[in-house]
Structure formats: C-alpha cells, structure tokens
Design a protein around this nucleic acid. Sequence first.
DNA 1: AATATTTACTTGTATATACAAGATAACTTT
DNA 2: AAAGTTATCTTGTATATACAAGTAAATATT
Lengths: 238, 238
Amino acid sequence: MSKKEVIHLYKKVIEDLKSLIEKGEYKKGDLLPSENELCRSYDTTRVTIRQALSSLANMGYITRRHGKGSIVSEPKSGLGILSLSGVTAGIGNHKLTTTILQKPVKQAWPDDFFYELDEAEAEAGCIFFSRLRHIDNIPVLYEETHISNVDLPHFSSRNLENKSLFKILKEHYKIEVKEGEQKIWAIHADKNISGLLNIKTTHPIVHMKRRLQTNNKGLRIYSSLYCNTEENFLQDSF
Amino acid sequence: MSKKEVIHLYKKVIEDLKSLIEKGEYKKGDLLPSENELCRSYDTTRVTIRQALSSLANMGYITRRHGKGSIVSEPKSGLGILSLSGVTAGIGNHKLTTTILQKPVKQAWPDDFFYELDEAEAEAGCIFFSRLRHIDNIPVLYEETHISNVDLPHFSSRNLENKSLFKILKEHYKIEVKEGEQKIWAIHADKNISGLLNIKTTHPIVHMKRRLQTNNKGLRIYSSLYCNTEENFLQDSF
DNA sequence: AATATTTACTTGTATATACAAGATAACTTT
DNA sequence: AAAGTTATCTTGTATATACAAGTAAATATT
C-alpha cells in the first residue's frame, strides 16, 4: 500500500523554478520564461502557471512586471528568519561554526516558559537543545530552542552542527516557517552568558525571544538567543 | 478628462472583506462566506473570488482550510513593522506620546548614509525627520527617519505626533510597506543618545537600522533607532 | 449504542478561452 | 532625424466549467 502522493503540476512548476533560482541558473535581474512559454513547457494553461508564479512572487523569489515579465529577485534569507551576519558584507571568508551544548532531548516544558502554550502543546512536551555559534572561533551567539514535541522521526540524532535547523525541518519533514513574532532587548550579560560568550558582564548584548509558527499545525519553534554584537550584527529580512 | 480608474472586481472584494474584518464585523475565528456565496454576492466566478481570498490569506487577514472555509485571523501588526510594546501585555493603560525633534525637511542624503542608494534616489534627495517616543512621559525610543524624496503633497506639514508614519503613508498616499531588512545591535548609549533617553552611558540599548521597500518603486524608508529596553521591549511580527 | 456509509457542503487543482493593458521594437509619417 | 503609429510581445483581469479531496453532519448498518 504505497502512499500515492499526487504531485500537483503547479507545485512542480514552483519547485522547478525555485531550484533553478537557488542553483543560480537564473540570476538576480534575469527574466523567467514567459507565461506562455511555461505553458508550452509544462503542457498546461496560464491559470496554472500563474498560480505557480504568483506563489513564487509571494515567497520573494521573483517580482512580476506587467507587460515585461517575471524578474528574479535578490536571494532572500527568507520569511523573517533571523540570520547572523558579519559587519563586512555577509559572512564572506569568515568561518562560522556551531557547537551543540545540549543535544536534542524530549522533556516537559519549563514551568516558567516565556510564551503561552496551547493545551495539546503543553501536554505533548517539547524537544530542547542549545547551541553556541562562533565566527572565526569566537563565540558570538548562544541560542536555546524549544520545539513542540510532534512526531519527527530521528530528529534527535540529526546533526545540528553544520546545517541550519530550518533546512533540516524543510528537507526531512517538509516543515516551513509561516509566521512569527520576536521580542528584542538590549541587556548586560549575566554570569552564565558572559561565560559562554567570553565577555565582561558590563558588555551590552542583544537578547531576543522568538515564536515561529510552521505549516504543521501542532509544531511551533521557540527560541531565546543572546548575541554579542560587537563585531557582528543580527540581520533580518522580511 | 477624468481619469477613468477602472476598479477591478477582485480588488473590490479584497477591500470589502478587509474593511469588514478591520471593523470587527468578522471577528477572529469566524468563517467568511464560502466561495460560492461570494460568487453569488458579486455575480462572478470562483477564479475571481479565489484571487481575492488568496490575496487576503497572503496579507494575513485569513487562513484558508481545505473543506472548511476561510477563517479570520488574529489582527496582525502587519508585515514586519516594528512596534513598541510594554512588558505588560501591550501598551495597555500606558501613555504613549511622541515628540518631533526635527520636523520633516527636504535635504541631501548624508555623505555617510548607512545604506546604499540607487542613482535616482541619490539625486532626488530625501526627507528627514526625527522623533522621540515616550511611554508614561519617560523617553524610550529615539528614531531618525529618511524617506526618498518623491512627490508627497503636504507631507512636511502633516502631524507625525499622534499617527504612525505608516498610517499616514497608507491613508493619504496609498503607500504600503512591502518588504524590508533590519540590522540589530546592542550598544552602550553615546553622549547624544544618553541625553535624549535620559540614561547613563553604561546603559545597554538596542540600536536598529532598517530599510523598508514600498509599493511605490522610488520610495524607500530608512530608519535608525535607539531604544531603552529596560522597562519595555521591541516587538516585531511577521 | 457504536460504527460505517452516504450526502452535501467546503476549498483545491485544472482546462479552455477572451479581452484589456503595459512594454518594446519595428515601421511609417512628418 | 524626429515623432507618431502599429505590431507583437508581455502580464492582468475575467468568465465558464469540471472534477478531486477535505470536513462534518445526517443517515444507514451492525
């Protein structure tokens, strides 16, 4: 009894074009094939092709211009997901490494958890892990992550060191972040954080708490992070 | 020679439903009329109604559920626009006031402007103003704003004290923010900022630089802000 | 009473078609 | 040569229709 998994044409068009853009075959500023050309390629009609293109436009991969065509956009870090950049044009030749301080473990939610949980979520518990990120071997960002405990086969054993959490969730479980909120403070590091980031307790750091919702109803991602922004900054595109 | 301004049916559907949601006639969790009902109301077909509904879903006004209907979402602060919240559930009974330190003036871009400008933008110059926001009469956030100098009739004379910049742009000029990026640092206040926010220079504050793109090609909004997050935090929904 | 099944509603995917309107280059007129 | 026109490309809006598939309540079966 195989899962017949109908793949829809418009989704195939999205995936195809998305991967061509991500692979760099279409570069920023390029025009995609016209709607009618795509219709011929996929043997379909404009309604279906337009469904795919408007979705790509929505995801920020292209912008559409009346009478002109679909123009490939600047690659985005995607849907408000926070990324860490060096002051000098992106990470560039800097070395970004990640250390897992706490491997993913299933546990109950902390009593004083910083966001409200719905009933099902509270009952199911969570997966917790923490990571420390370095740029050129200097610790820069400490992050604690709580994920709602839904069925994610083999998640605990996955390697979180090199790949981003979001890539793993997308590639292995087809989970994508849909929306979220974040709260931001500037604080002085406490003893714990100053030790982790190797800074004085008078050093200002960014403290951020985020809640991200995904396309999986029951799965939310909560993270609390502390960042030393002396040599770097936190960057966020939306 | 009047401008015939064809209004499109799908846009009318969007505006109608949007305003009903904003007015609270449809509340969070309510179901909108089904696609077929809307077809009858507007004497059109599902393709057109679906174009409107998918747009509303995209703007975050509704979520759509296969086999169920269109569910009205929680009102959002909108597209990654930063808002300022008190630690206790929103602003609530706190008093939020704004002081204009520098009224909007047309001027050339600063030589050391923090974002790259395109040619047309650089040539046209900018509108600059700065504001200081207080919560319960305590200064909390200082913001400098640069806007590309496109034609905004009477903009300089508008009252920026009570209404938000985004509301003014939307209501009077039909300009809406489409996307943006922001960079975040934690720093110690310099003399200028510590004076404005009435804090010591050892006090950690959030420094944020943002670039927002609008539906008007030539108009971008740049802002640089400094926030004392001791009693409040910066909040961002996306 | 508990469990399937049917039915009627909902949204999702798709085809086929038509005309409007913006963009651009080729062509014609002045 | 410059200016206006046309032709032809592009995307935008819209109608009409069909069937697939998720949801939920009514109905039939056990």
